[in-house]
């Protein structure tokens, strides 16, 4: 039997490498949207929450305004506050370490930490830090590679980068659609976004689709 700390490390590392490689897609998306290599890399270093980063560059690529891009990214990032609520009593740190813990609080670090629950608090804390730091390392490394690669390739449409971005969103959405109800919410949001597209400035239909979430989540099912 593998020792508990080693099993936790293995969980953390496999998640970190897998998720980190998605950074290639983000790096390419940043360049396709018109951001520089430096700006694209700074997104991964400073924003460090995948879906929000994709949303910010995606809205700009769609011709949306800066406010729409920032609003979409921030709305997607609000779930990290809920993760923070769960992780705060676990990591129990203050000062700079708390700032670092907050920055590393994302889907994956929270997910691996919670998955270690049967192995105890120590393993959960270890899972959180190892996954957070591991994803940070690989996500940033692969963002740089993706950005440099896309820069070298040139025209986004010519290399299919304009289809890679919506495919990446579909790939991020897919694992969340665990029930029929959630699939209906997703399909409704797509239809809603397409219906309002001719009537709203570019980028706003994405923000407006949050209304579907509000309407669907308002009442208990």
């Amino acid at each position: 039997m593998t020792s508990a700390p080693r099993a936790t490390s293995r969980d953390a590392l496999s998640v970190a490498i897998t998720v980190g490689t998605y950074g290639v897609a983000f790096g390419a998306a940043g360049i396709a949207a018109g951001f520089s290599v430096l700006q694209t890399c700074l997104f991964s270093l400073l924003t460090f929450t995948g879906a929000s980063q994709f949303a910010a560059v995606g809205v700009m690529a769609a011709g949306g305004g800066a406010a729409s891009a920032v609003a979409a990214a921030t709305m997607l990032g609000t779930r990290n506050a809920l993760y923070g609520l769960q992780m705060a009593p676990l990591v129990r740190v203050k000062g700079l370490r708390r700032v670092a813990a907050a920055h590393l609080t994302i889907d994956e670090s929270t997910g691996v930490a919670l998955a270690q629950t049967p192995r105890g608090t120590h393993a959960m804390r270890r899972g959180f830090w190892l996954t957070g730091l591991g994803v940070y390392l690989f996500w940033n490394l692969f963002t740089l590679l993706g950005a440099l690669g896309a820069k070298a390739l040139g025209s986004p449409a010519s290399w299919g980068l304009d289809a890679a971005v919506p495919a990446a969103f579909l790939g991020l959405l897919w694992p969340r659609l665990t029930t029929t109800y959630l699939r209906v919410v997703a399909a409704s949001s797509m239809v809603f976004a397409l219906l309002v597209t001719p009537w709203l400035p570019a980028g706003l239909p994405i923000i407006a689709s949050a209304l579907v979430a509000v309407v669907c989540g308002w009442r208990e099912r």
Partner: peptide, 11 residues
């Protein structure tokens, strides 16, 4: 539900 709606709209 917000991430599901926003990601769907982004697709």
């Amino acid at each position: 539900l917000v991430p599901i709606s926003l990601l769907s709209a982004l697709v």
